[in-house]
Simulated assay, not measured.
Amino acid sequence: MNYTTYLFDFDYTLADSSRGIVTCFRNVLTRHGYTEVTDDDIKRTIGKTLEASFSILTGMTDAGQLAGFKAEYRKEADTHMTVNTMLFPETKSVLTTLKDSGARIGIISTKYRFRIKELLDQHFPADFMEIIVGGEDVKAAKPSPEGLLLAIKRLHVSKAETLYIGDSTVDAETAQAAGIDFAGITHGVTTVKELEKYPHRKIMSTLEELPTIQEEHSSYSRLKNSSCR
């Protein structure tokens, strides 16, 4: 079976929002005296929930204080996030090619859905994405498979025809938990070696490699089916 559905992570997969994320974290952390945290420390938490990220960066575990940090971050993001987020150079052409070929495409992210749409609406028609599942749409954040499973249910597609593409080990864990094929992309700070520890169809340096995954998948499926005869 060919892939008919491509579901993507957002940050460091389709777009580079690291400048905005670092700015928002930096402003909140500095306000509370956490001045030793580096930009790389912050970038390593991209893809996790805000509460988890702040806990990692500060050592804080109190739920009330972490919720306060999250609220401050959201206010910072209203000003700094979208203006400091850019699609990767190949994102628009790759997504358009997939769409034109009849594939269904969507996004599963811990980022808020409205924040994702703020950027996408600058580049694509309003109905371009089949589905966007953001952090506000699930009870359990990645690596829980809830978001992925919700998407394939709403799209009425099978796991076998779905590929999830992401940049982090959290994304790899999410796909594994959902029972969905995974492709890694090294746009972010996670290395090939780190991603290769998880089941995957391919680890890519650019989204332009997606068509080769489809070809490899089709060849694998034909070989598997012929060996069963």
Rank of each mutant, 00 (worst) to 15 (best):
I116K: 06
G188D: 09
A183Q: 02
A160H: 11
I152T: 05
Q176C: 10
T190W: 03
V170H: 00
I132E: 01
D121S: 14
R104K: 15
L98P: 01
K153V: 05
T191P: 15
L148D: 05
K142E: 11
K111F: 05
I132A: 02
S158M: 12
T191L: 11
L119M: 15
R104T: 14
T96C: 06
K139R: 14
P125S: 10
G106A: 13
L163I: 13
F128S: 04
L163V: 10
K197A: 15
A103Y: 12
E216V: 07
A140E: 15
R113E: 07
I203S: 01
V157A: 08
A151H: 01
Q214K: 05
L155D: 10
E130Y: 05
K197Q: 15
E209P: 03
Y112C: 06
I165F: 01
H187V: 05
G188P: 10
P145V: 00
E209A: 12
H200P: 05
P125A: 10
R154W: 14
E209N: 08
A178K: 02
K142Q: 13
V133D: 02
L163T: 03
R113I: 01
E209I: 06
I108C: 10
E209K: 08
K197V: 14
I105V: 14
E208W: 03
V170I: 15
E196V: 06
L120D: 08
A140C: 14
V138Y: 00
G134L: 12
F124R: 08
E130L: 07
G135C: 12
P199C: 07
S144R: 00
D121L: 11
R201S: 06
T212P: 07
G188I: 08
E216C: 07
D181C: 05
L155Y: 11
K153F: 07
K159R: 15
L148V: 13
G135Q: 12
E161K: 08
K99P: 14
K197I: 13
A160S: 13
Q122Y: 04
L207R: 04
D121W: 10
L120P: 08
V133W: 01
E146H: 01
H200L: 07
L149K: 05
Q214R: 07
R104A: 08
D137L: 03
D121Q: 13
K117F: 01
T96V: 14
K117M: 12
P199I: 03
M204R: 00
D100T: 12
Q176M: 11
Q122E: 15
M129G: 05
V138K: 00
L148M: 10
T96F: 01
S205C: 03
K139Y: 08
F114G: 06
A141C: 10
I105G: 03
G188M: 05
L98Y: 00
I203E: 00
